[in-house]
Design a binder for these strands. Structure first.
Lengths: 155, 155
DNA sequence: TTTTCTGCAAACGATTTGCATACAC
DNA sequence: GTGTATGCAAATCGTTTGCAGAAAA
């Protein structure tokens, strides 16, 4: 495995776009680049991305950010996630199906979101498919509780 | 196990409310009753509940519906669920912890939400707790794919 | 009679949309 | 050139809030 999760360079983006009749634009490139440049800062909302753009003195409008995130999600480059905080968030999609899935541990006290980088649901999925006839393509798993930091603390 | 999932009669509601200094009102009773009366129609949004109230010639306002759903969720009588369709939905909470959890299978074609009434995550939770130190209190699991009806169909 | 609730309407925040202009191909 | 994309502002949609009157304890 390589040392970072970067998967989509500029040319990959161009390819995926033109495949479906979309055009490569500096705005789309720049917005994707923000995710590549912030591997630590996962789970960014449209507003988060917009703020980073303004820090970078970029003139991209908020509506364009919404449209680009939507498109990148549709192309499978980003994945939309939802932590129930009232806004859609996005993270880079990992290409290797073996590392594709991870789970989110959401602390009810400090509200931090921790990633758990194993999936371990293959058996369960196989069982559900067999029992229900439902063909599973993807899943989203959130665990709520207290992180190791908050666990001991009073209120 | 009894033949329905009804858990909270009127007096249970009164008890849970007064325990925390809230008052029993006809509005709260009526809104909870809608969930009890529609065991088949799970996953109702505030708007859904409001529409049923209006069909019933009830004068309860939409803001009251939002406040009541929020409160019933806080009391553990309802559980909020989110299917990414842009509005909060609620379902009756099951009392028996053994049946508390179920999973939602969301069909990408017909958009139906199917319940899968087994949990089977105890092992995974134990593993995550051990490995991450995160104390798990609850979880939310969604599977996306095609239901048995839509599975064969073209587009 | 004190405090909490309700209903209404206005406020809100995230997201979407219409439209004229600008740009990618 | 042609069709798509952008930026702006206005519109939309689910949800929340302020407030005065109504009702529960």
């Amino acid at each position: 495995m390589s040392e970072n999760h970067q998967l989509f360079g500029t040319e990959d983006l161009r390819g995926k776009l033109s495949e479906r009749g979309y055009k490569m634009t500096p705005q789309r490139k720049e917005i994707l680049q923000i995710f590549v440049n912030h591997p630590d800062n996962h789970h960014m909302s449209a507003e988060d991305v917009y703020n980073i753009l303004r820090e970078n003195k970029s003139e991209i409008g908020l509506a364009t950010v919404y449209r680009a995130l939507d498109l990148l999600n549709e192309l499978g480059i980003l994945v939309q996630v939802d932590f129930g905080d009232g806004c859609a968030r996005y993270e880079l999609n990992a290409a290797d199906p073996k590392v594709h899935h991870h789970h989110h541990l959401i602390c009810l006290k400090c509200k931090n979101v921790i990633e758990f980088d194993e999936d371990l649901l293959d058996q369960l999925e196989a069982y559900i498919e067999k029992k229900s006839g439902f063909q599973i393509l993807n899943h989203e798993v959130k665990f709520f509780g207290y992180c190791s930091e908050c666990r001991g603390k009073e209120d």
